[in-house]
Amino acid sequence: MNTLRTRPLAPLLALSLVFGVGCRAQSVDQTVGQARSDIVASAFALERYADGASTRTFTQASIQQYAAALRASAATLRGSAAGTKEAAAVADARSVLAALSAGITKDAARSAASRLRADAAKLSGT
């Protein structure tokens, strides 16, 4: 009886395992992709501010939001199968944005933007 009951379950379990792992892998890819987009977006926001083409309040508010999003992405990547290079790039970008949270100048914005571009480049191959 038990054998009869468990037999149909085996392929189902295998399928759900494959499906679950596939979904998990997709989730990590999504997280890396989202983090890369957030890093590029924050770099662009900072560049526009440094060029005098955006306001300080908007840039500051945007940076806070991207920093919060990257904090979540970094936490997800820490417990995932993502490479250490990717996790380190996201963590670095987060620290760059965190350093700007107290206030930004145009010079600081420009140098932070180029560091963020470098972090994004490390994620581009993933």
Partner: peptide, 18 residues
């Protein structure tokens, strides 16, 4: 073209900033 995806509302604003 800049590789920016809208995941948050302020990112929409970047299109008008551009």
């Amino acid at each position: 073209p800049r590789g920016i995806e809208v995941n948050q509302l302020q990112t929409v604003g970047l299109s008008l900033v551009a």
